[in-house]
């Protein structure tokens, strides 16, 4: 499986990732690190406790990492970051936040599975 095939399989934006990282070697390194970094797992765990500060910080981190890696759908975690950014009014109900996190979780599992297949060749 090539990196491009991986991005196709996980609905990522390969061109965007390459614009940020420039060389495939770097992209390979960082996409492999995604699951190990636990950055999206931390967001999903924060969602269980619904603690605003933790939700903001983890969503903010996930948004940045996924955005840089061209994982644009996962980077939609930015909604959660804006929802819990200090000073911002809440716009979603807790139920909607859970729904959004569930969608992110499903997408992340698909992404992690794709990366595992990529790592196994």
């Amino acid at each position: 499986m090539t990196l491009q095939e991986l991005y196709h399989a996980i609905d990522g934006d390969y061109e965007q990732a390459m614009r940020v990282l420039r060389i495939e070697k770097l992209l390979d390194k960082h996409i492999r690190k995604l699951a190990k970094s636990g950055v999206v797992d931390a967001l999903l765990i924060a969602g269980e406790g619904m603690e605003p500060t933790a939700l903001f910080e983890t969503a903010h981190a996930a948004k940045g990492v996924c955005g840089n890696l061209g994982l644009t759908k996962l980077a939609a975690a930015s909604d959660i970051a804006e929802e819990f950014r200090p000073g911002n009014p809440r716009r979603m109900s807790d139920g909607e936040v859970h729904d959004r996190l569930n969608a992110i979780g499903a997408l992340y599992r698909k992404t992690a599975e794709g990366i595992a297949q990529y790592e196994n060749g």
Partner: peptide, 13 residues
């Protein structure tokens, strides 16, 4: 940058 992961990536780039 208040997101350390982003800062590390920029430094690496």
């Amino acid at each position: 940058e208040d997101n350390p992961a982003n800062a590390r990536l920029v430094a690496e780039l």
